[in-house]
Design a protein around this nucleic acid. Structure first.
Lengths: 341, 341
DNA sequence: CTGAAAGCGCTTACAG
DNA sequence: CTGAAAGCGCTTACAG
């Protein structure tokens, strides 16, 4: 590979000048520019990104820190990543998928991240990755709130989880439902707790008491129950005699489909007997099911875009004022899976 | 941030020695190692990845080159990426999402990719990205065959598309089906053409003639027809009088669901009246639909793992013999959407 | 507008 | 097993 000296020699200029032609950080005369470009073309020269980074201290890449372990993307994550990649590349940044586990964080051979900033997906409490980013002084934004006491100066993008649950409860109670089974996210997720609280409060305000068995949590992905969870919980709820469930809120589209199988096997149907509401599903998928699923549109892609913008503000790439905690709107998309009682 | 000189000074050794402690490229005495580690901890030192890369000429990152434009991931891509990320990180490599469009490829300010190799997803004919990788002498593997005449020395991972179609035709004709509607992938995809040929051949061998309107192609993602395609093509096929469709092969799960809506609206049902087969769907999704969808398991995640291994062989990270064109097995998962005629 | 020189923070032969 | 020195390929004040 040709390097800057080769081009400088061939174009009859100094390497500083070649550098300027490519970085455009200070003006260069037309003649010289063209001579340099010609020489570069002939030598098939491309500036070495690494060498440049070493002196500018900029990698022009941001890290996307994924959850630990044998993690598999949901549609929500996928769309989020789409937003991140689109916005980052529009601003000239690349995205580095970061999959460093807590274990590796401690290995001394690990070098610093070659990134200018990071976006942390699925932060947990006492998150090793956040601690490390903080220690390395790498600016980052998290998707959802974090609780690390030692980290101030946080930047977040998020949906308004409380409002989402309240909107859903409004909608379902407005249709006359009072016995609502909530198939919530996994227990470890901070979002699950936020939702539960809002759910209980919103129902209480309407004089409806929430029994513990009406709020269920998604089991871990590596457990045996994971695949059957939606079906089992629904079958169980439909079979119990003390309460008569008339509506179900499912965390995602798959859980909803799974629950709908249980409803069918119980000789019931959606939405005639049971209304089904999805919080965090793939909109295009929900559009194609029978019946088409009513649910929240969380705009995961927009969340990704906003995460990048926030980070770019923090990095000084984007100028002007900005919110440190950006809330992305969400709205109910009414299709055909909920009906009045 | 502390640098290697600071640590060397504090530990009372040379920077070469500090370097060795972290890279472990040559032995270091226990005492010295511990002194260096202690000093590093106290100074919160982490080796600078960029500086290291500049001299080793290794970035320890591979690029994942995504399709151009306003591309959105399908479940297949998502799972593929999962495989790539898992395997790459197991081998100590990070994954850089590459979204450089053909336009940007020509901008002179673009610096070279800070990657050791690349995986190209969704290669097209006359692919600008492949040409660029080739020119930059960056080793790469493509997912699916490529047709760039000027690029020899190719490395690919792939499913056996011909065999897949033949297996499906075997299965469906074995159930007695002869009138099969094929809702194929998009026309620009090289895989679509391979499938069509295999489909026509396999049916011809059984004395079944394939009429052009029995093979349909998915419209572009940005067209108005995209969302309705599965429904419209199915409704149209069910309404035509010259042929009586008894089975449908759908490219993905969404298309299948969409087609099933058309079947339902025509007063028919799956699998009693029409059998439905999915080529490239999300297995966990297909498991939850009603009826559960029979289809091919293409093992996208395994495809991702193999792509990484192939690249690592090429980079010399993995030793030993290897296939230049790796075929990943696929098998039919029989659920409840196909039945004998 | 252009050039000469120092420096970014590491690794790597070369000696010992 | 350890050190001193050169060098990786750029950018950036500093002069002119």
């Amino acid at each position: 590979m040709a390097k800057i000296d080769d081009v400088a020699r061939r174009a009859g200029v100094s390497k500083g000048t070649v550098s300027n032609v490519f970085s455009q950080k200070r003006p260069t005369s037309k003649k010289v520019t063209e001579r340099v470009l010609k020489a570069s073309r002939e030598l098939n020269y491309v500036p070495n990104h690494i060498a440049r980074s070493l002196v500018t201290k900029q990698t022009m890449a941001i890290g996307l820190t994924l959850p630990h372990g044998n993690f598999f993307f949901s549609s929500f994550h996928t769309q989020f990543i789409n937003g991140v990649v689109l916005e980052a590349s529009a601003l000239g940044y690349r995205v580095l998928l970061d999959t460093i586990s807590a274990k590796e964080v401690k290995t001394p051979t690990l070098a610093s991240y070659p990134i200018d900033g990071a976006i942390v997906l699925g932060p947990t409490e006492e998150d090793e990755r956040i601690r490390m980013l903080h220690r390395s002084r790498i600016p980052f934004v998290t998707v959802g709130k974090i609780a690390n006491a030692d980290v101030s100066d946080t930047l977040t993008v998020n949906n308004d989880n409380e409002r989402i649950i309240r909107d859903i409860v409004d909608y379902l109670t407005g249709l006359g439902h009072r016995e609502i089974l909530f198939l919530n996210a996994g227990k470890r997720m901070t979002v699950a707790a936020e939702r539960t609280e809002a759910f209980v409060d919103a129902l209480a305000e309407r004089g409806i008491e929430t029994l513990p068995h009406m709020i269920r949590y998604k089991p871990p992905i590596d457990s045996d129950e994971y695949m059957k969870y939606g079906y089992d919980e629904t079958a169980h709820a439909l079979g119990s005699l003390d309460r008569k469930v008339t509506a179900i809120i499912a965390d995602d589209d798959r859980t909803a489909l799974s629950a709908m199988n249980a409803i069918k096997d119980a000789g019931l149907s959606v939405p005639e007997d049971i209304s089904m509401f999805v919080i965090c599903g793939d909109q295009s998928m929900m559009h194609q099911t029978t019946p088409a699923l009513t649910g929240m549109d969380l705009q995961p892609s927009e969340l990704g875009v906003r995460a990048v913008r926030l980070l770019m503000h923090r990095l000084g790439v984007l100028k002007g004022e900005y919110e440190r905690d950006w809330i992305v709107d969400s709205s109910i998309i009414v299709r055909h899976s909920c009906s009045p009682l």
